[in-house]
């Protein structure tokens, strides 16, 4: 995952924003504590969302502590949920997905990226090992995704749904693991599946120009081949993304969210659409609506 699941800050209450920040800081701290100080660099918004959602649906107590930021010791921070099981899970999942992302970069990145990836590979590999020991089910889900992705990209008949399937399935099964009962399992699986699709597609749209140049796989290239590269392409991408978001949001609405609802609603209703617009249409076109 790649940091697309963001909040829309201007639409949050101040207290909600502070809570969000403290979850973000706590995830950073957990990465540092459980893995290494350098593992803090893989901190992402996606897993902050994951941490907020999984803490939000569980009854387990969430503590707020005050402390200092490691990177800026002059700054005092609030940490929300350090030591919480769900926070540890979010950290483990960050480490595992970061490792497989790195592997993917080594496979089909540009030469500069390849060299950089090789240099950090041993560290990522060690962290992943540690995370996989604790949560083998996550390791299994993510490695299955990586394998499946390789397969579908080689398949000549691969259509857009098939291309998104690995990411969607991975997030569906990981989300399912957060459920407490059968009903929640179904809800989270659906939520994760379509959110996974959305993340996969938004990343694909973002990389489309680059992939076209480098000759890499991209699910939207087939559309270009069939229909031509014109302004309809963006409209089409937008529709695909809208539908995934809509279906994930419908599932989310059925979940019993016990805390952080304001933050999670903000991400679904404002954050994701904003990111989608930014990636698809650039910032400029929406300036009048977005400026504060």
């Amino acid at each position: 995952m790649f940091g697309y699941v963001q909040i829309e800050k201007s639409e949050l209450l101040v207290k909600e924003y502070e809570t969000y920040k403290s979850i973000y800081c706590a995830l950073c701290k957990t990465l540092g504590k459980e893995y290494s100080v350098f593992a803090r660099f893989i901190l992402s918004y996606d897993f902050t969302f994951f941490a907020a959602l999984s803490m939000g649906v569980h009854d387990q107590k969430v503590c707020f502590n005050k402390g200092r930021c490691t990177f800026n010791p002059l700054k005092k921070c609030v940490f929300c949920g350090t030591g919480n099981d769900n926070m540890k899970k979010a950290a483990a999942l960050s480490v595992i997905t970061a490792f497989y992302k790195l592997k993917d970069d080594i496979r089909d990145g540009r030469i500069g990226k390849k060299i950089r990836s090789y240099l950090v590979y041993p560290f990522f590999s060690r962290w992943r090992k540690k995370a996989a020991q604790k949560y083998p089910e996550y390791e299994e889900a993510v490695s299955a995704m990586s394998q499946m992705q390789e397969q579908v990209e080689e398949d000549q008949m691969c259509h857009i749904d098939m291309a998104a399937e690995p990411t969607a399935k991975m997030l569906a099964s990981v989300m399912e693991m957060q459920a407490k009962n059968e009903m929640e399992k179904r809800i989270f699986s659906e939520l994760g599946y379509h959110l996974g699709r959305w993340i996969y597609f938004i990343d694909a749209v973002d990389d489309l120009e680059k992939d076209k140049k480098d000759g890499n796989f991209n699910p939207f290239l087939k559309y270009i081949k069939d229909e031509g590269d014109n302004e309809n392409l963006k409209k089409y991408c937008n529709e695909v993304l809208n539908q995934s978001m809509c279906l994930s949001y419908n599932a989310y609405n059925l979940a019993d969210i016990k805390r952080f609802k304001g933050i999670l609603d903000n991400i679904y209703l404002k954050g994701l659409p904003f990111v989608q617009r930014k990636v698809l249409f650039g910032k400029g076109e929406f300036n009048d609506e977005e400026s504060l």
Binding site: E239, N242, C246, N250, Y268, P273
Partner: peptide, 17 residues
């Protein structure tokens, strides 16, 4: 139904705020 999901405003969310 499919068309309305694919249009903005589907599922009760309104990205234009």
């Amino acid at each position: 139904r499919m068309n309305s999901q694919r249009a903005y405003g589907a599922g009760g969310y309104d990205p234009r705020g």
